[in-house]
Simulated scan of single mutants.
Amino acid sequence: MPKHDVSSADDGELVQLLSPTGERVANAGYDEWVEDVDDDQLKSLYEDMVVVRRIDTEATALQRQGELGLWPPLIGQEAAQIGSGRTLREDDFVFGSYRENGVAYCRGVDYTDLLRVWRGNSHAGWNPYDINMAPSQVIIGAQTLHATGYALGCQQDGVDTVAITYFGDGATSQGDPNEAMVFAASFQAPVIFFCQNNQWAISEPVGLQARAPIASRAPGFGIPSMRIDGNDVLAVMAATRIALDRARSGNGPTYIEAVTYRMGPHTTSDDPSRYVDVLEREDWQAKDPVRRMEAYLQSRNLLTDELTNQVKAKADAVAKKLRDGCLALEEPEALSVFDNVYSKPTSWLERQKDQYAQYLQSFEGGH
Rank of each mutant, 00 (worst) to 15 (best):
A80M: 11
Q81R: 10
I82C: 08
I82D: 09
S84P: 03
S84N: 11
G85L: 08
R86L: 11
T87A: 15
L88G: 10
R89S: 10
R89F: 07
E90I: 07
D91H: 13
D91T: 13
V94S: 04
V94L: 14
F95D: 10
F95V: 10
F95T: 08
G96R: 08
S97A: 15
N101Q: 15
N101L: 14
G102F: 11
G102T: 12
A104N: 13
A104L: 15
Y105H: 14
C106F: 07
C106N: 09
R107G: 05
G108P: 04
G108D: 09
V109G: 01
V109E: 02
T112F: 03
T112L: 03
T112Y: 06
D113A: 09
L114I: 07
L114V: 09
L115G: 01
L115R: 04
V117A: 00
R119F: 00
R119M: 10
R119D: 01
N121S: 13
S122Y: 00
H123P: 00
H123Q: 06
H123E: 06
G125D: 03
N127E: 12
P128C: 01
Y129M: 02
D130C: 01
I131S: 06
I131R: 04
I131A: 08
N132D: 04
N132T: 03
M133V: 02
M133Q: 12
A134T: 01
A134I: 01
A134F: 13
P135E: 05
P135A: 05
P135D: 04
S136L: 13
Q137S: 15
V138P: 00
I139E: 06
A142F: 03
Q143I: 02
T144L: 07
L145Q: 11
A147I: 09
T148G: 08
G149S: 12
Y150D: 04
A151K: 08
L152K: 02
L152R: 02
G153F: 12
